[in-house]
């Protein structure tokens, strides 16, 4: 370990470059857990967040799944929102300008039913200012078409990433599904398609049953499991991918405090994303960034990059 010794009071550098996305700190908020930012503006300064990854957006408006859409589970929660969103055009004209005005670093999250749809959304975004990168949702477990089915087949992963890359000059970050046998194979396919970074992990497919009603809790039957329950799975997958793939990783899955975030960084994440944690503590992104900085000061670490992958053997 290259310990760049620092003097007391000297500033540590917690800014990172995630495949071309310059982040002032390594803490992003995950898509689908932070709306379009405005929902949380009373609780946290939007421009202080490393990156805001906005709600997954499709070409057309989507109404989402029938309720119930969320259920609490041990150390986690299930959701089956079904990509409810106003469509890409409304996002670009009505939601994005506000975030830009607030000085937020915005990463768009896109989803489609077909490869052509992903490409079309990327092309719309390309014509706009104020977006730092495109995160590709190829792993949503809650929609019948698209989403998960793209993310579980290496060949389709490569093709859909390449299609988006060909339409945009922005960094492209596919979000990988953990619902696969071999995550490394999928990560390599994304790399082959031209991805600039990888986001890991999306939710784990799960369900819950209401024994009084004798039926599934969620209207959609299955939903995505998130929260601290999935943290060990996320850490393991990032560890595996970090060893085999050169791309920077945006790591997340159940981060509730800065110690959790450091675990992700130490298994290879360049930056982290906070999802479910936002629901518990609406200014968690700031708290985690501050905690990382304090950890670095206390441990005489000048640059956050010194910690990336440090626990990988």
């Amino acid at each position: 370990m290259n310990k760049g010794l620092i003097n007391p009071g000297e500033l540590v550098d917690i800014s990172v470059n995630l495949g071309g996305v310059k982040m002032k700190n390594p803490v992003a908020v995950a898509s689908g857990t932070f709306g379009y930012g405005r929902e949380y503006e009373d609780f946290i300064n939007l421009s202080s967040i490393g990156a805001i990854i906005v709600k997954g957006t499709t070409l057309e408006v989507r109404n989402g799944n029938k309720p119930p859409r969320v259920a609490e589970t041990p150390a986690g929660m299930l959701n089956a929102i079904g990509l409810e969103n106003p469509g890409i055009d409304k996002f670009l004209t009505e939601y994005l300008p506000y975030l830009n005005q607030k000085g937020a670093t915005v990463i768009a999250n896109i989803a489609g039913n077909t490869i052509e749809e992903y490409a079309a959304i990327a092309s719309r975004i390309e014509s706009c200012q104020g977006i730092a990168a495109i995160e590709m949702n190829i792993s949503c477990p809650n929609v019948k078409q698209g989403g998960l089915q793209f993310g579980t087949n290496p060949e389709t992963v490569m093709r859909v990433v390449a299609a988006v890359k060909s339409e945009t000059s922005l960094p492209v970050i596919p979000k990988l599904s953990p619902n696969v046998t071999d995550i490394v194979e999928i990560a390599k396919a994304a790399e082959a398609g031209g991805a600039d970074a990888l986001a890991m992990i999306n939710t784990l497919l799960g369900m819950a049953v209401d024994i009084k009603k004798r039926q599934p809790v969620l209207g959609n039957i299955f939903g995505g499991l998130s929260g601290p329950a999935i943290k060990p799975v996320a850490l393991r997958m990032i560890y595996q991918v970090y060893k085999e793939v050169k791309l920077p990783i945006l790591g997340g899955g159940g981060i509730m405090n800065y110690q959790d975030a450091l675990e992700f960084i130490m298994v290879g994440a360049t930056a982290v994303s906070i999802g479910t944690g936002n629901f518990v503590n609406p200014h968690i992104a700031g708290d985690v960034a501050q905690g990382i900085q304090q950890y670095m000061e206390e441990n005489h670490i000048k640059n956050i990059n010194e910690l990336v992958g440090i626990a990988v053997k």
């Binding site: 949380y40 309720p67 929102i81 936002n278």
Partner: peptide, 16 residues
Amino acid sequence: EEHMACGVGACLGCAR
């Protein structure tokens, strides 16, 4: 009344 996660309109969980 509805089960909620975020309480601020971000998660879209308490839909009806």
